[in-house]
Design a protein around this nucleic acid. Structure first.
Lengths: 261, 261
DNA sequence: GTCCGAAGTTCCATTATTTGAAACTAATTC
DNA sequence: GAATTAGTTTCAAATAATGGAACTTCGGAC
């Protein structure tokens, strides 16, 4: 037993259960969890009890089913404010959204996946948590590829191994080989495109956010639709995007910054 | 050992440490945590290791200090989407913000505190996580008082005991007695005011979101400033606010809803 | 360069917690 | 109303957590 995030101790087991509940996206019954979880009934039962008691899970009074608890929101707020690029990058995202009139995303790498930490949508007013905290595939999004391209070579294989290479659209890069080739291009070009690889009709241009030392700490993207724009138009804004990324990186370095994985 | 959220097992201890790190709002060093945490060095050390390994904490490579980890964002997103009123209430918040031109808040009660789960700011375009996941005092905010007023009588003492009654402004209700009296008024009136009790110059009108059975599941508020509006003006919109709250409650009940605490 | 102290990490016998098969109870179904 | 399923409790055995103390690092001070 050693693949991935091995379950260390009771805490690890409890979090595995928590993840499983979260993954369902709707209230789950005890027996559903029992069926998939490999823990004996009593053990799972007590893990769930603990999680509920701690507020990480909420239990419906009526049905007894479980769902993620609100305590997670409080903790996440702290994480967002302290450990993400979002608070630092905020003014620049506002500016970019204004300038481009398009949707702007700020993302970081977490466990080999893209984690969106902020978003601006110039057209529609808001859209909150719906975006921050959302995760997406790294191999078929602009921000994902931009970050992978600038990962230290040693870290790449591990991350590649975690990609599913599911084919969302005909344009999706569906193998580690194709992706690796694309990453090399991105490295020389300096920015990544999403050519409708994740969603039909959705295109984007993304740049990595790099520290002076060249370490990737996030990515920035401007997204549009094929109906409204073209890759060429988006590419024209890449210089400005890189400029903003550099400014965010500079601001972040003053305030210190952690490792992505 | 029995008051509040007693630490059950290792999971409880780990979460206590996590909370402590989150509470700091900036990277914390091991020794700082050691000083405040009552656990012996080795124990605290291993708890932190576990949390880092699980991605709930991030450790700076350079300084070794700890901060909340990004994994929390992913989990919180699930909580927000599955267990909060926000996804259900979204369209109504948009409408309200449009109609009033003021800031609209959606909150729920969590551990005796107000937890903001969504927000609309008609004037300024955005402001993301900065608001969702944020917690605030229940005794001196409109949404807080609106929820407390409609709590089942049996639940009130426990919640009152958790209020700090810190005096933010001259108008803050600074005792359980004053608050209890105000709650009775709110109950008959049907809506709560914030008369600059939390921040000078900030006023609001809030209503509870109640199930058919009369259970509080959240609160809704329209906030303004003394410069721009008056309590009377806000009160004039209370009817509409109640109407929207009822619609949200109806929508929520179809989709089922958990307990607040 | 060496010494000192503070901060962080590892060890290991002791101790407390977790484990899980099975027995039990409550709620559905037939 | 008996049978089946879903959820909860029990308790001795197994496992993991504990924490005092020893150890290693690191960053000055001399």
């Amino acid at each position: 037993m050693a693949s991935g995030a091995g379950a260390d101790g009771t805490v690890g087991k409890a979090l595995e259960v928590l993840d499983r509940v979260a993954a369902h996206g709707r209230p789950v019954r005890f027996s559903d969890l029992l069926a998939e979880s490999a823990y004996p009934k009593a053990t799972l039962y007590r893990l769930l009890q603990t999680l509920v008691h701690q507020g990480l899970l909420t239990q419906d009074d009526a049905t007894g089913s479980y769902r993620p608890g609100l305590r997670l929101l409080r903790l996440a707020h702290a994480a967002w404010a302290t450990a993400s690029l979002a608070p630092i990058a905020r003014p620049w995202l506002d500016t970019l959204a204004m300038e481009t009139g398009e949707t702007v995303h700020l993302a970081q790498l977490d466990q080999g996946q893209v984690l969106y930490v902020d978003k601006r949508n110039a057209a529609r007013p808001v859209e909150m948590y719906s975006s921050a905290g959302k995760v997406g595939p790294a191999y078929c999004t602009g921000v994902g590829k931009a970050m992978l391209a600038f990962l230290p070579p040693a870290a790449l294989p591990g991350v590649l191994a975690r990609q599913s290479f599911h084919r969302f659209t005909p344009a999706t890069l569906d193998s580690a080989e194709k992706l690796t080739a694309e990453l090399a291009e991105i490295r020389t070009r300096g920015h990544a495109f999403d050519r409708e690889e994740h969603e039909p009709g959705i295109i984007c241009c993304a740049v990595p956010i790099l520290t002076r030392g060249g370490r990737v700490i996030g990515a920035l993207s401007v997204t549009s639709t094929t109906a409204r724009s073209t890759l060429e138009t988006l590419a024209a804004g890449a210089g400005r995007l890189r400029e903003v990324a550099a400014q965010i990186a500079a601001a972040a370095e003053d305030w210190q910054f952690p490792e992505a994985g």
